[in-house]
Simulated scan of single mutants.
Amino acid sequence: MKGLSVDLQLVLPELREPMRRAQVSAPRWLVRIAVRLLRVPTSNAVRVTNERTGSTRIRVYQPTSAHSGAALLWIHGGGLLFGDAKQDEALCLSTAEQLGIVIVSANYRFAPEHPFPAAHDDVLTAWYWLLAHAKELRVDPERIAIGGESAGAGLAAGLVQRIHDEGEAAPCGQWLFAPMLDDRTAARRELDALQHFVWDNEANREGWSGYLGTAPGAATAPPYSVPGRRIDVSGLPPAFITWGDIELFAEEDRAYADALRDAGVPVTTDVVTGAPHGFENWARDAPSAKALVKRAQEWLRTVTAPA
């Protein structure tokens, strides 16, 4: 991540100061340590436990009072290079409490040390763990959604595709915040000059190159590694996709939403004007971020409701 360079007038005024604080310029190893050491909020209405399935670490959020019987598999962001389930603690606590749903938040291995399919296999393992423990968690297997933010949302989209193809118990919806969907964006060198806030195309190229183990934009990519390349998206579950209009992923997110809609998949899009990438996380106290999360949670409430 780099310093500010784009005209601040494009950014919502309420996001400008939080954005300054969100800009990070540090070695990847230091970012990884810092994220793991994050101080996290707490809630008396949600019990948080840490579990492990094989080599995959997961964080489980269980409402202590109201319990809807639904669940969400959540996948954190970090450009496929860093991150931790704890970075989304506020969103997971809020969502579990407001909707009365169980949330399983998955950690996964990072590129470039662990290229595809490592992270993909890790989140698939978390999905199977959730299904295997649905009864003891008091979760209806037919009312589980899959979601994530940024790279995590891209992993979520790829996971939904794989589950669909394998004919297993399908998620009831996909909840995608600013998803990182298409490596071909990283191959577009003309986007480098725009230096998008928070996550620019040079960082994007680093993430995709490490994950794919090759330069982005090749003629083909392994199945499920690049969700935005999938040709046939028919039959996938309903989707909520949100992004900011000034972020790097705006074009690829819009293209994926259009492809889903054209294939007959119910899609709700929520485009926030003047919002840089991931603002609902690093500026979560801003009115625009709170409003987006509320709209997203209402969609999730509806899609996970009993049939």
Results as ranks from 00 to 15, higher is better:
I75W: 06
G78N: 07
R36W: 14
V198I: 15
A275W: 11
V11K: 10
S105D: 01
I146H: 02
V104W: 01
Q161A: 12
D270N: 12
V139I: 12
A221P: 01
V48S: 11
F82Q: 07
A145E: 02
R189L: 03
S43F: 14
A255E: 10
H196S: 03
A45P: 01
N107M: 05
V46H: 10
F197L: 13
A71W: 09
V60P: 09
P223V: 06
A153F: 07
W299N: 04
A203L: 15
L91Q: 10
S105K: 00
G79S: 01
L73G: 00
L130Q: 03
F177I: 05
S225A: 09
F110Q: 02
S288T: 15
L99K: 08
P266M: 09
R21V: 13
L37V: 10
D122M: 08
N201F: 09
H277A: 08
P222H: 03
M1R: 06
V303F: 10
L159S: 05
R52V: 13
K135G: 05
A106Q: 00
F82S: 08
V293Y: 10
G278M: 00
V31D: 11
W299R: 04
A219K: 12
E168S: 01
A132T: 07
E51W: 08
G154Y: 04
G217C: 01
V265C: 04
R47E: 14
G207M: 12
L91F: 08
H76I: 01
N50T: 13
L30C: 08
A250R: 13
A157Q: 07
G167S: 08
G217P: 02
S209P: 06
T56A: 04
A257D: 03
I75T: 02
D183Y: 12
R36Q: 14
D232G: 02
P276G: 04
P306T: 06
A132Y: 00
S150V: 03
V102N: 00
Q174M: 04
D183S: 02
H277Q: 12
H67C: 07
A156R: 11
R301Q: 00
A119R: 09
A90D: 10
R39Y: 08
D88N: 01
W74H: 08
R57H: 14
A132F: 07
T273V: 14
A126L: 06
S43W: 15
L137D: 02
Y61K: 00
K86R: 04
D140G: 01
L181S: 01
K86Q: 05
P227L: 02
D262E: 14
L130I: 07
A119Y: 07
L194A: 11
A305N: 10
W175K: 03
P266G: 03
A259I: 05
Y211L: 05
R284C: 06
P227R: 00
T273E: 15
T42A: 07
S209F: 06
A45W: 14
L93K: 03
V102H: 00
T64V: 12
L248C: 10
S68Q: 15
G235Y: 11
V160C: 03
G228M: 05
K294V: 07
H133K: 11
R295V: 11
L38W: 15
A296D: 06
A96S: 05
T95V: 08
